[in-house]
């Protein structure tokens, strides 16, 4: 009975050194700041903590932040695969430029993106004024928040799905076609299952990015309490009152919730790649 192995022996040397650096690096950049946050929160007793993180205004912001992030990640999952498909499977003039455009949301300062999106989607902007005719308001509503989150999450799905799609054997699709599969069956039974793990990773990244986004969202949100206030803004509000513990309490809730959700998505991804 030798079920648990501490470490698979490897022929490569240097495990101790590289593992040491990995832990040091992660500790300095991620673990220590996060531990500091939780330590700060620990100054509150349980009742104070609970009151701070379940205030109706804070609850309304969780609904908006998590809801809009999830919708934005979902939109990106669908259209990100589409963009990746076009970039991998077709040759067309200007393909390199389109490819580079995908990364732009990474590079542009988010405040610039926020101001630009607001300019376009407010009722005087050139998208907003047409949408207004149909009674759709984008800027200063939860829809605007979702639009900004979709924008900043766009590159994640495309960039995670693209390399997998490139490595996908076309012979598989041809074989399926020879065996009489319809196009829809090929997509559903052959292509999508191979893309699923990468797609889930992209979805998780886009979701996490949207959840933490502040710079672009505050410009388009309108920030009305109980309506379009995102959770990161409430954290800033607490800090402006020098309420450090209140701010870290909300931060801790976001951290735990995000961690659980990412864990679930990673679990799904593991399950999807095993099944395949």
């Amino acid at each position: 009975m030798n079920g648990f192995v501490w470490r698979q022996p490897s022929v490569l040397p240097g495990f101790g050194l590289t593992m040491g650096f990995t832990l040091l690096y992660l500790s300095l950049l991620v673990l220590i700041p996060l531990a500091g946050m939780i330590l700060f929160t620990a100054k509150l007793d349980w009742a104070q903590f609970w009151a701070a993180v379940t205030h109706p205004q804070v609850m309304a912001s969780y609904r908006l932040s998590f809801g809009a992030s999830f919708i934005a990640a979902g939109i990106n999952a669908v259209f990100g695969v589409l963009v990746a498909w076009v970039l991998v499977r077709y040759a067309f003039p200007g393909k390199r430029i389109v490819d580079a455009l995908v990364d732009l949301p990474f590079a542009l300062p988010t405040a610039v993106a926020g101001i630009a999106l607001t300019a376009i989607y407010s009722t005087t902007g050139w998208m907003g004024q047409h949408l207004e005719i149909f009674g759709i308001k984008v800027a200063y509503t939860p829809i605007g928040v979702t639009v900004a989150m979709t924008y900043i999450g766009l590159p994640f799905v495309v960039r995670t799905v693209q390399p997998v799609l490139e490595d996908l054997d076309r012979e598989l699709e041809e074989a399926a076609a020879c065996l009489g599969a319809t196009r829809w069956q090929i997509i559903r039974r052959v292509i999508l299952p191979s893309l699923l793990p990468a797609l889930l990773t992209g979805l998780a990244l886009a979701f996490a990015r949207a959840l933490g986004e502040y710079g672009s969202v505050v410009f388009i949100a309108g920030n009305m309490p109980y309506y379009t206030e995102i959770t990161p803004l409430l954290i800033i509000t607490k800090l402006e009152q020098y309420d450090y513990t209140g701010a870290t309490a909300i931060g801790t809730v976001m951290l735990v919730a995000a961690f659980v959700l990412l864990l679930i998505i990673n679990g799904l991804q593991w399950w999807a790649s095993r099944r395949h």
Partner: peptide
């Protein structure tokens, strides 16, 4: 209608 977080915005 809109509450910006800072005066310049």
């Amino acid at each position: 209608p809109v509450l910006d977080p800072a005066a310049r915005g």
